[in-house]
Design a protein around this nucleic acid. Structure first.
Length: 176
DNA sequence: CAATAGATGTCCT
DNA sequence: GGACATCTATTGG
């Protein structure tokens, strides 16, 4: 959920995530603790936003104990409320191109550096709410997308057959 | 449809 | 200098 003064309320339902841990070579927290990944080592329930490929933001929910360095990347969501505003931010009105990818999701919700570290539990403009339970049979699992190390850890989780799941294919074809 | 190039900040070797 | 938790526009079948 995203609520800003003077703007329509935005809400989405998350349908795709990936897990990252400190002992995991694909994780930003695997090596050293830097100003960029600092939030990952903080208390759970906060938002970790990072900037990548020189132009995109991606957001994570911090999950571990304080000092631990683990988080869940939010990769895709179904837009529910405020589609017009999201379309304006994204520059397209095609619903499946509003937040079906980690960088798209950030852009649609207007999440950037300023939001890194905010508390998603206590709520303040940006927060998480429990949604409908997804039956186990509908939860798909695969290797994570866009990584080269840690491919064997199949820590990408998504709702089977949901059209809003991102089209990024899991790291499997590694060819060199 | 698939493959590829390009944009380019931050961290790592 | 190179890799990277990405997306878009463009090119070619």
């Amino acid at each position: 959920m995203r609520e800003l003064p003077g703007e329509p309320r935005l809400s989405v339902r998350i349908v795709e995530t990936e897990a990252y841990r400190e002992d995991d070579p694909a994780s930003h927290s695997y090596r050293s603790r830097t100003p960029r990944n600092e939030v990952m080592f903080g208390p759970a329930g906060r938002l970790y936003v990072y900037f990548t490929y020189g132009m995109h933001f991606c957001m994570n929910v911090v999950t571990g104990q304080e000092g631990e360095g683990s988080a869940v990347l939010l990769r895709a969501a179904v837009p529910l409320e405020g589609l017009e505003e999201m379309a304006r931010r994204r520059g397209t009105s095609e619903p499946r191109r509003l937040c079906s990818g980690p960088a798209m999701l950030c852009e649609a919700l207007g999440v950037g550096r300023a939001e890194s570290g905010v508390d998603l539990v206590r709520g303040g403009g940006l927060w998480l709410e429990a949604g409908d339970r997804v039956p186990r049979a509908r939860v798909g699992r695969s290797a994570r997308v866009g990584i080269r190390q840690g491919v064997e850890r199949r820590w990408r989780f998504f709702v089977n057959d949901d059209p809003f799941v991102s089209r990024g294919r899991p790291a499997a074809r590694v060819k060199d």
